[in-house]
């Protein structure tokens, strides 16, 4: 069968190649779709750290994705209207600079992940799934009913934010930026997986008692992983907001959490490139089935069901014929 590393290289090259080809042929929309896949895959890579490595089934990661999005929305909308966010005790102004926005998005979603994680990780199993879901809903309802930043209407940013040296409004340049971030984060996530911390994290998933016996604190390890995972989702949210030039509470809804999870599982839980493959399949299905029937979600549902029942290793598992190390 195909070796997973070979397959990963092929996937990576494919994802670089298709948009470049589309660029040459003037198929602008294909580039936009590829960018969307990259951004959603980035959120998936974040979730995969909690889900695949740490075995933490979180149904509330939309919260971090949305907080990242709102970090971008709030900063950029203040820059757009030239109204400072805060004047006392010291002046904070909005910004249209992507790197600054990203850093803030990562910090804000990290803080949220720390708070939610610290409470949620006191529980496990089904409790953990439902408490993360409920925290997600709490933030979702807050965003809808809080009028300052548009409530359910969300925030529109008319022009994409700036990145030094690039014209981000040109689709291929923005794609290149997103693809570079995705590649960097996948690389970091692979380093993390094979680091001492990554080993310890996987140990907590496989056997909690034994992990404790060797002197590690599973709670602390899980919490750190949960925060890293939330931070990556926050970054993905900020980039996604820039792709759409728009943020709204929909980013925070539990359907978003479900979709991010679907990307990971469709690709193959715990595998490095799973989120990219999963997001690609999902977006393409949405794109093509949507044109075939108004009731396309039935087919999407059936397909997902088939994957869960008959291909537990996801698509990558199917191609490499090796059962994923998830238990």
């Amino acid at each position: 069968m195909i070796k997973e590393t070979d397959l990963n290289t092929a996937i990576w090259l494919l994802f670089l190649g298709v948009p470049l080809a589309a660029w040459q042929m003037g198929e602008i929309y294909t580039i936009t779709l590829a960018t969307k896949i990259c951004v959603l895959a980035l959120a998936g890579v974040g979730l995969n750290i909690a889900l695949g490595l740490g075995g933490m089934v979180s149904l509330g990661h939309a919260a971090f994705f949305g907080i990242g999005g709102y970090a971008m929305g709030i900063l950029a909308s203040h820059a757009q209207s030239y109204a400072p966010i805060m004047e006392t005790p010291f002046l904070i102004e909005g910004t249209k600079s992507m790197p600054v926005i990203w850093v803030l998005a990562i910090i804000m979603s990290g803080i949220a992940a720390l708070a939610i994680g610290a409470l949620s990780l006191r529980t496990n199993g089904a409790y953990f799934i439902m408490i993360t879901l409920a925290f997600g809903q709490m933030i979702y309802f807050f965003a809808i009913s809080w009028p300052a930043y548009g409530g359910e209407d969300g925030l529109s940013i008319y022009v994409r934010n700036d990145f030094p040296g690039l014209n981000t409004l040109v689709p291929i340049q923005f794609f290149a930026l997103c693809f570079a971030i995705l590649t960097a984060v996948i690389f970091l996530s692979s380093r993390l997986e094979h680091s001492r911390f990554g080993m310890a994290l996987q140990a907590t998933r496989q056997n909690e008692t034994r992990t404790q016996a060797v002197g590690l604190t599973p709670y602390k390890i899980r919490l750190i992983a949960f925060v890293i995972s939330g931070m990556i989702c926050g970054l993905a949210g900020a980039v996604s907001a820039d792709l759409n030039r728009f943020v709204s509470p929909t980013m925070l809804s539990w359907h978003t959490s479900g979709e991010i999870m679907i990307f990971v599982i469709l690709g193959g839980t715990g595998r490095l490139f799973a989120p990219l493959v999963g997001a690609a399949i999902y977006i393409m299905l949405e794109h093509f089935l949507g044109g075939v029937s108004d009731y396309w979600q039935i087919f999407l549902g059936l397909l997902l069901l088939m994957v869960v029942l008959f291909a537990p290793g996801g698509v990558i598992g199917l191609l490499t014929k090796r059962e994923a190390a998830h238990d």
């Binding site: 602008i28 929309y29 689709p171 759409n244």
Partner: peptide
């Protein structure tokens, strides 16, 4: 009824 899908469709209609 999803804003992100609507934005994407608008991009598609305008761009391609």
């Amino acid at each position: 009824r999803k804003p992100d899908i609507a934005v994407q469709l608008a991009d598609k209609m305008i761009q391609s």
